[in-house]
């Protein structure tokens, strides 16, 4: 199966306020508010460099963050599908 490539709006399309363990994100194109935890803000930031699939995002995240890459791709892929459903990401 070919990997799904995702794209996101540029960072300036979102206003992010860190509340505690959760961040509030105001998504300007939709006017919707999302409460999110890690690694959602990091995924969105990683996509600022252009569209990527789950493996590509894991590679980008690995540069700045420490995590176990073994099952990271599965976790990231699940988050990507959720973000697509709420319109923060789309397939290209």
């Amino acid at each position: 199966m070919a990997a799904i490539l995702y794209a996101a709006d540029p960072p300036e399309a979102r206003r992010r306020v860190s509340l505690d363990a959760l961040d509030a994100i105001h998504h300007r194109p939709s006017g919707q508010t999302h409460l999110v935890c890690e690694p959602i803000p990091q995924i969105l930031e990683a996509l600022a460099a252009g569209p990527a699939d789950a493996a590509g995002i894991v590679a980008r995240l690995a540069i700045a963050h420490e995590f176990d890459p073994a099952d990271a791709a599965t976790i990231i892929a699940a988050r990507l599908a959720e973000l697509e459903a709420i319109g923060l990401l789309w397939r290209v």
Binding site: A21, A24, H26, L35
Partner: peptide, 26 residues
């Protein structure tokens, strides 16, 4: 109460949070 919990409770306690858009969020 944690700020995120209060935030959620207050969005539910507001009748015009969505209609105000970003100024409401801020």
């Amino acid at each position: 109460m944690a700020p995120s919990e209060v935030f959620v409770r207050l969005t539910q306690a507001s009748t015009n949070y969505v209609a105000l858009g970003e100024p409401g969020f801020a």
